[in-house]
Amino acid sequence: MRWLNLVSIDWVTVEANVEKSNRVLIVEQGLQQISYGVVLAYAIRRRLFERLDAPLERFVGAEVPPSVSRVPETTALANTDSVRAALVPITSDGHGAR
């Protein structure tokens, strides 16, 4: 899902997905300190806290200086393997049954 602002979020869809797993992982390519995910995480916690069985998690791009080179940029971006690895803690027995 992608949004540019909180007004356009389809909360019905977000709530339905939280009901399925009772967990949230926000994945984004931006830096941790300057991300839209912080705002989204706050809104989800505020609205859906009682439905979450585990802490809301965020997975962001690597903390590297902005670059114009493809090699560091590619290294910093989230990929399928790194997102799967970020899902393990919230889908294993560490925060509830799988």
Rank of each mutant, 00 (worst) to 15 (best):
R84M: 14
V24Y: 09
P72D: 06
G37N: 04
F59V: 14
Q33V: 06
K20N: 06
V38I: 09
A62T: 11
S69D: 07
E57K: 15
R58H: 03
T74F: 12
S69Q: 09
N22P: 04
A41H: 12
V71Q: 12
S67F: 06
A16K: 13
E28T: 05
V68F: 13
L87A: 02
V60S: 15
L6V: 01
R51M: 12
R51F: 07
V12Q: 15
V24Q: 04
R46W: 11
V60Y: 13
E19Y: 08
F49D: 13
V7N: 15
G37K: 01
V88A: 13
A78C: 10
L25C: 00
L25I: 04
V60G: 12
P55W: 01
A62V: 11
I44P: 06
R84P: 00
V39M: 13
F49N: 08
E28V: 01
V60K: 02
V60T: 15
V83A: 03
T75F: 15
I44G: 05
V27K: 05
L48F: 14
E57G: 10
G37D: 04
R46N: 11
L31V: 09
V83L: 00
T13A: 12
L48G: 10
V14S: 05
A41F: 07
I9C: 01
R23K: 05
L31F: 14
S67V: 10
A16Y: 01
Q29N: 15
V12G: 10
V38N: 14
S35H: 02
S35W: 02
A86M: 01
A43Y: 02
V83P: 01
N5W: 06
V60P: 03
S35E: 05
S8P: 03
L77S: 08
R23H: 05
L40K: 02
A85I: 05
N17P: 00
E19H: 14
Y42D: 13
